[in-house]
Design a protein around this nucleic acid. Structure first.
Lengths: 251, 251
DNA sequence: CGGACAGTTGAATGAATTCAACAATCGTGG
DNA sequence: CCACGATTGTTGAATTCATTCAACTGTCCG
């Protein structure tokens, strides 16, 4: 296998990012899938500046701030949002344990979005400069960073597809299913979970009004598709939810 | 200046990506802002596999295809789109000369989107593996790739903001102004240009119906904001367009 | 020249929003 | 520990913005 392959294609035998807590402060998105040896691991470990806790509503970083850290979520959840000069806000993602935030600041050296805790959240702050240093030394770390960013682009593409082409009902069905999948991949229950974000946040994320979110959730509930009580949600009929998300006749 | 700075922050004294045609096949997004010496330049030049021309409607690459090349647009324009399993399509971007396509395939080794020529387009295909090889050797090239990807994320964020929070009229005003800016930064006229995409494509991109695009363009025309005749557009009142895009009272 | 495609316009419909009122819950300080 | 205000969630009614369907024109390309 050539060096190029190691740099650009997934190293053979390396699986996808598994939802296993990494000893090195939960940064599994960065270090787990790499198969680093002890020395490299220690090196990577050394860039972790400090662990920190943010309360609900606290801002991890905001647009325009200097890009000093990459944030790895250890527990809790975070929303990221962008805003326009005229004050409109679009939530671009909800992030949970194991995910890495802030890499998109690379281009300009300043964060483009705001990251705010949805509930008490514990993070590791990784020094951006030293991470860059490490990345130069350990190709697989560099590869992994590129991988994370290109993964982010894919995720954004999916949200654009959702925002641009689906109706409210489909958006919400797809949203619930997306959450379900993410929880499943982290060994949480895919059918029963707690929403850490408000209806308003969901609406903003999906490009629909808060009231519409309510109404549709109520309808789903009445139709027996889900059981929704405040922020607890249980998916009762994933099959039909899928059909709804795809606007299938078999709804 | 430390190595990390060179890797992660914009090298001092290097400006933004200037719209100057690069001798090396127009890949200025990749090689221009780097200040490479002759040897590096030659190395970088060597990864360019071949120049190729696509006619209107031709597909450069499609979703699922193996990630073998990065595409640098020399002339013409390209649209990229993603689609869902149930056949819905969302155009995620229109790309013109100097832009680089395909890097987001890095994560999985397969393209996630489709790239299709809007008109006759000339591209350079850059071998992905060899580019990866070079990137490992020349830090500034690696940096530049990260930069391009993080720039892509920013651009996507802006589209999400547009799709999620603006009404049709605002979307269209913002769209025209965005085009204007891009043309300006490439030393084309910011007030008069030809749209290479159909009304349908614009509508899809903005998440509105083709007819709505027509109606609003007509209204803009009648209000003296623009002069639109088929695909030729002239912006007559950029100030008011801005106001419209921001939903300002001063419209 | 002719067919297909792209663009435009009108009328009817509908999905989602806005505005409003109210209920339930949370969290904070007395 | 309770009470209170603030936040969050829910529901109804009226409205609006955008869509859909349809017909038609103009334009491009083979």
């Amino acid at each position: 296998m050539s060096a190029a392959v190691q740099t650009f294609n997934r190293p053979a035998g390396q699986g996808t990012c598994e939802p296993i807590a990494c000893t090195h402060c939960g940064v599994y998105q960065l270090c787990l899938p790499l198969g680093l040896d002890g020395t490299d691991m220690a090196l990577l470990d050394s860039v972790v500046r400090r662990k920190e806790v943010y309360k609900r509503g606290a801002v991890l970083f905001g647009p325009g701030e200097r890009f000093d850290y990459v944030y790895a979520i250890r527990s809790g959840s975070v929303k990221t949002s962008v805003s326009s000069d005229d004050g409109r806000v679009q939530i671009t993602g909800f992030h949970i344990a194991g995910e890495l935030l802030g890499l998109s600041a690379l281009a300009s050296g300043h964060y483009s979005c705001e990251a705010r805790a949805l509930e008490t959240v514990s993070v590791c702050k990784v020094e951006a400069e030293r991470l860059g240093e490490i990345a130069r030394k350990i190709p697989s770390v560099q590869y992994q960073m590129l991988r994370i960013m290109s993964g982010q682009i894919r995720q954004d593409e999916q949200l654009m597809l959702l925002l641009g082409t689906r109706r409210a009902e489909e958006k919400l069905a797809a949203y619930l299913l997306g959450l379900s999948q993410r929880f499943a991949s982290r060994n949480y229950s895919p059918t029963q979970f707690r929403l850490s974000m408000s209806r308003k946040d969901i609406g903003n994320y999906l490009g629909i009004a808060e009231e519409t979110v309510c109404r549709i959730l109520t309808r789903f509930h009445e139709d027996g598709l889900i059981t929704a009580e405040r922020r607890m949600v249980r998916l009762n009929d994933i099959r039909r939810l899928h059909a709804l998300a795809r606007n299938d006749a078999a709804a």
